[in-house]
């Protein structure tokens, strides 16, 4: 697998660390009820097919990326900066 980093270009997967589903950038409000926090921390769609997840380019530019990816075929169809994905999501 290679991930096409917006700053560095296509790089081997060894350079990246996986965090998990992009759920992590949609953090509940501090005052939210425990259900929302449980959902955020633990529960997942866990799709067999297209997913969007967070990768860290630790051995490269240090950017956090949202990668659009197929969990069945390992095909990667999109890479964007996490901060932009977060901004789009509001």
């Amino acid at each position: 697998m290679q991930i096409d980093c917006p700053f560095c270009g296509a790089r081997d997967i060894r350079e990246f660390t996986y965090l998990g589903h992009e759920t992590y950038i949609h953090r509940p409000a501090d005052e939210a009820w425990s259900d929302a926090w449980n959902d955020y921390l633990h529960n997942r769609e866990n799709p067999a097919g297209m997913t969007r997840d967070l990768w860290f380019h630790g051995s490269g530019c240090g950017a956090w990326l949202v990668v659009t990816r197929n969990t069945v075929t390992h095909e990667i169809t999109g890479v964007e900066l996490a901060r932009e994905a977060s901004r789009h999501a509001g």
Partner: peptide, 11 residues
């Protein structure tokens, strides 16, 4: 990383 591919990568 999350995967249903039933095969892994080389690293």
């Amino acid at each position: 990383y999350a995967s249903y591919a039933a095969r892994g990568n080389l690293p």
